[in-house]
């Protein structure tokens, strides 16, 4: 951490009861490339936030800072009122040890564009791995829970299959089940359907819609405008490392206030 960020502890506490995720003036550069240029975002518990924006606008980077896969240069991210990756003491931020960061991540599910299933493990082993090794659940309980999750994503009969034997849509549904196995309070999706053939997109979006309906807090980066309109409580439009505008889907998608949002939407709609 180069810049010791000064965040008054008071604000964190007062807003903690409503906000699930709080992002405060987050900056991030890769070398000379300034990718995130002061992001502020609140996500309330139980809500679905859809992030839109052109390629390279920093959507993935933002998502990855939320579970500390990417370290911020300055600013703070907190989930459930707890800072991610750091401990605030006085007005200094102390970097957490890797072990503690890993523990924090078990409360945040992450679904990747390219699934990243473990190819040498069966579907069931993929799902059971984290609950057993990170949460120390007994393997039997974890397996029973995993089978329920597979049933929920419509893949009850694929428990013993290897990822390579599944279609892209099925693999992504397994990846979602794997993330859910930790019973996270927050789910992050980074373009979950972008690597899929068009006819497989629907089955994955259906699973995500199902989760939204059950009240899971989610942040979804996607280019599926129809999905955003149907499921999102808030749509966030990003461009060049900044949030250009945000609001209910009816506002942002149908009557955007900013020229850049309008230009982007006219291209993807």
């Amino acid at each position: 951490m180069s810049s010791a960020v000064t965040v008054s502890a008071a604000t964190t506490v007062t807003e903690a009861d409503t906000a699930k995720v709080e992002i405060r003036s987050v900056h991030k550069s890769f070398g000379t490339l300034h990718v995130l240029r002061g992001i502020d975002l609140d996500v309330r518990a139980g809500e679905v936030t859809v992030v839109l924006g052109p390629s390279g606008s920093g959507k993935s980077t933002l998502l990855r800072t939320i579970n500390h896969l990417e370290k911020v240069d300055s600013g703070t991210v907190s989930v459930d009122g707890t800072l991610v990756g750091y401990r605030l003491s006085g007005n200094k931020l102390y970097e957490l040890r890797e072990r503690d960061i890993l523990k924090q991540r078990t409360r945040i599910g992450f679904v990747f564009q390219n699934f990243h299933l473990f190819p040498h493990l069966t579907v069931l082993e993929n799902i059971v791995e984290a609950p057993v090794s990170a949460l120390k659940r007994p393997r039997k309980d974890a397996e029973a829970a995993a089978r329920k999750l597979l049933d929920r994503v419509g893949l009850a009969d694929k428990a013993e299959a290897y990822p390579k034997q599944l279609s892209g849509g099925q693999q992504q549904r397994v990846a979602i089940a794997r993330a859910l196995a930790l019973e996270p309070g927050l789910l992050l999706f980074d373009e979950p359907t972008s690597a899929l053939d068009p006819e497989l997109v629907g089955e994955v979006l259906d699973v995500i819609k199902d989760l939204a309906a059950s009240g899971t807090t989610m942040i979804v980066v996607t280019h599926e405008i129809g999905f955003a309109r149907e499921v999102a409580d808030t749509v966030v439009f990003m461009d060049e490392g900044r949030i250009v505008e945000q609001g209910p889907p009816g506002e942002v998608l149908d009557s955007p206030r900013h020229e850049r949002t309008r230009a982007f939407l006219s291209k993807v709609l």
Binding site: F112, L117, F118, E129, A130, S133, A134, L135
Partner: peptide, 26 residues
């Protein structure tokens, strides 16, 4: 693939276990 250890890290799997169970077998 780097995505493998990234996925393991995002699931909170302990570091040594990531190596032994996810990275080394592959």
């Amino acid at each position: 693939d780097e995505g493998q250890s990234e996925a393991a890290a995002s699931l909170g799997i302990p570091r040594l276990r990531q190596l032994r169970r996810i990275v080394l077998p592959q």
